[in-house]
Amino acid sequence: MGLDALPTDLLGTWTLTRVVDDRLAGERRDVVGTATLALESPDRVRWSEEGTMTWAGRSVPVSRTLYVDRVGAGWEVSFSDGRPFHPWATGERVGHPCGRDLYTGLIEVAESTWTVEWQASGPEKDYVMRTVHSERR
């Protein structure tokens, strides 16, 4: 694996640990759970996450589902409702406008782990969210 890893290279269930450093709110939020990448068809991977977010003495369950679809020679990530999110481009920064805010993301794949980092900035958001996926099952 590495810079040119495809979503199909990451199939399975991974341990997920996420840290959200919310500079606007002045707090840190942690998520522990799992991320599962499952092949739905040769051209579609379902990327689902579930876990528990904790901060300031509180905890809540969290979940989301994304899809990664082969489009031409590449792959595109979309939200569960079909809205486009970003291209799958390991080792390259990608952008996603969200209202007046901008998300800048980076997926990096190593031999036994992969990370996703998002930096959100703008009038309504100012945070860094870093997710480490390890221990594939």
Results as ranks from 00 to 15, higher is better:
49 E>K: 04
64 R>M: 07
38 A>S: 15
61 P>C: 01
67 Y>T: 09
69 D>C: 01
50 E>N: 12
65 T>L: 06
52 T>G: 04
34 T>K: 10
75 W>C: 08
69 D>M: 00
64 R>E: 08
62 V>H: 04
49 E>H: 13
33 G>P: 06
65 T>A: 06
52 T>Q: 08
59 S>L: 03
46 R>Q: 11
41 S>A: 14
68 V>N: 02
41 S>N: 07
59 S>W: 04
38 A>M: 06
51 G>M: 09
67 Y>R: 10
45 V>G: 05
59 S>E: 15
44 R>F: 09
70 R>H: 01
51 G>F: 08
37 L>Y: 07
60 V>Q: 12
66 L>Q: 12
69 D>P: 01
75 W>D: 08
75 W>Y: 14
47 W>H: 15
54 T>G: 08
48 S>V: 12
49 E>C: 14
51 G>C: 08
72 G>M: 02
41 S>C: 11
69 D>E: 09
56 A>Y: 01
70 R>C: 07
36 T>F: 02
54 T>W: 03
51 G>P: 08
54 T>A: 13
69 D>F: 05
60 V>P: 00
43 D>E: 14
51 G>A: 12
37 L>Q: 02
70 R>N: 02
59 S>N: 09
43 D>V: 04
39 L>W: 00
65 T>K: 03
55 W>Y: 15
35 A>T: 15
73 A>W: 03
60 V>M: 11
38 A>E: 13
44 R>L: 15
74 G>H: 04
61 P>M: 01
66 L>A: 02
72 G>T: 11
47 W>F: 14
46 R>V: 14
77 V>K: 04
47 W>T: 04
60 V>D: 08
61 P>Q: 12
48 S>F: 01
